[in-house]
Amino acid sequence: MAKVAFLLADGFEDSEMTNPYEALKEAGHEAVIVGFEQGLECKGKKGAVYTTDLAVEDVKATDFDGVVIPGGGAPEALRVNEDLIAFVKEINQQSKLIAGICHGPQVMISADVLQGKDATCYIGIRDDVKLAGANFKDEEVVVSANLITSRTPKDEPAFIREILAKLG
């Protein structure tokens, strides 16, 4: 079974964390919440609370099979952390899964992993995704090499389906 890092900070979109997280665990995968500090409480926009399992400075890409980046306000905070961006870059260099929904691709932009790939996202960051070199597609889910992207909570079933398919 796969070991997947969920990158989390305050302000995440609750369902975009909860639904993929629970689906991966139900499928037998190991879901590890990674944030700025170990044991940090992260609060969602609608009240969900998760505690980080590991600090990003303590994780290695070789220990994981991929990352999931829930949307909401969290990606804006996550993208300025150098350790987190280095981790995502290493995951990409190893051609492992990077899945981002809604604002999640903001982290992908900062890690410079979108160049030449197809991607979708929340409409408000569409231009940023294009400027990062991606071919923007307004579709519920876009799979491009090791990247999986989706737009909004209504796209979660397709997002989850493709993550599970990629992890096998």
Rank of each mutant, 00 (worst) to 15 (best):
E16M: 09
Q115K: 15
I85P: 01
A31F: 10
G100A: 12
N81M: 06
A5I: 10
C102G: 11
I91L: 05
G11W: 03
K166Q: 07
A61P: 00
L24V: 10
Q94E: 05
A158K: 11
Q94T: 08
G47P: 07
L84A: 07
R79A: 02
M1L: 15
I160P: 05
A5C: 04
E26C: 08
E82R: 15
C42K: 08
V56Y: 11
P20Q: 04
V32W: 13
I91S: 10
A2N: 03
G104D: 02
I101R: 03
V80Y: 11
I109A: 00
E57P: 03
G11C: 08
E82K: 15
E57D: 14
G116Q: 12
Q106K: 12
R151P: 00
I160Q: 04
N146T: 10
L7V: 08
Q115P: 02
L84M: 15
I163F: 00
L164T: 09
E37C: 13
P105M: 03
D58V: 14
P105D: 01
E26Q: 15
V141K: 01
K45N: 10
N146A: 02
V80S: 13
Q38F: 11
A23C: 06
K166T: 15
L78C: 03
F6N: 03
V113T: 11
A74H: 05
C102R: 11
E162A: 07
K89T: 12
D155A: 08
E16N: 05
R79C: 08
G133N: 00
I148F: 01
D63Q: 10
L167W: 06
I163A: 03
K166C: 05
F6T: 13
P20L: 06
A2Y: 03
A99W: 02
I123G: 06
K25S: 09
G116H: 09
F12M: 01
D63K: 11
E140Q: 14
Y21G: 02
N92G: 14
D14G: 06
P75G: 05
H103V: 04
I163P: 04
K137S: 09
K166M: 09
A165F: 06
I85M: 08
G104K: 05
G73S: 09
G73V: 13
T62F: 04
D65T: 15
S15T: 14
C102L: 00
D155L: 04
R126M: 14
D127C: 07
V56C: 08
L7C: 01
F136A: 01
N81V: 13
Y50M: 09
M1V: 12
D10L: 09
Y21K: 09
V129D: 02
P153Y: 12
S144Q: 01
G71K: 07
G71L: 04
A23R: 10
V68L: 00
E156Y: 12
K117I: 08
V129R: 02
G66P: 07
K96M: 06
N92A: 15
M108S: 04
V80E: 08
G11M: 10
T62S: 14
C102E: 13
D112R: 14
E57S: 15
I98P: 04
S15A: 12
I101F: 01
P105V: 10
A23S: 13
E139T: 09
G44I: 10
D10E: 14
A5Q: 00
I123P: 04
C42S: 04
G73N: 11
T51S: 11
K60V: 09
